[in-house]
């Protein structure tokens, strides 16, 4: 698998990260090496093996539909970089 700078651009954009040209070159080379190493997995025969997302067979872990008091709004907003009248403030996002 060849990692190109174009691919690194694409995944950086999806991740909302910006890599200056020099960093991008270095990252491309590093990712190339890491991904090449990951290709070791090609040697493992996984035909017919069900992908395992949960290691233990837990299922149906639910809670009853009972309300609990919500957290104090001020506490929830205490860490907000910008807020107004109880709402979080961000640059214009509404079309």
């Amino acid at each position: 698998m060849k990692i190109t700078e174009a691919l690194v651009d694409y995944i950086s954009q999806l991740s909302r990260l910006r890599l200056p040209p020099e960093e991008k070159r270095a990252m491309t080379t590093e990712l190339e090496g890491i991904v090449a190493y990951m290709d070791v997995l090609d040697g493992l025969d996984t035909a017919g093996v069900e992908p395992m997302s949960h290691v233990f067979p837990l299922k149906n872990v639910t809670r009853p539909d009972q309300t609990a008091p919500s957290q104090d709004g001020e506490e929830l907003l205490a860490n907000a970089p910008a807020s107004k009248e109880g709402a979080f403030l961000v640059p214009k996002a509404v079309e």
Binding site: T62, R63, P64, S70, Q71, L76, G86
Partner: peptide, 24 residues
């Protein structure tokens, strides 16, 4: 009022985890 029906879980605070409502 804004952000009064919220808790760390539905606000996606770091470290919080979802637990499924059986009624859903």
């Amino acid at each position: 009022a804004p952000n009064t029906h919220c808790c760390p879980v539905c606000m996606g605070m770091p470290g919080t985890l979802p637990v499924l409502n059986q009624k859903v």
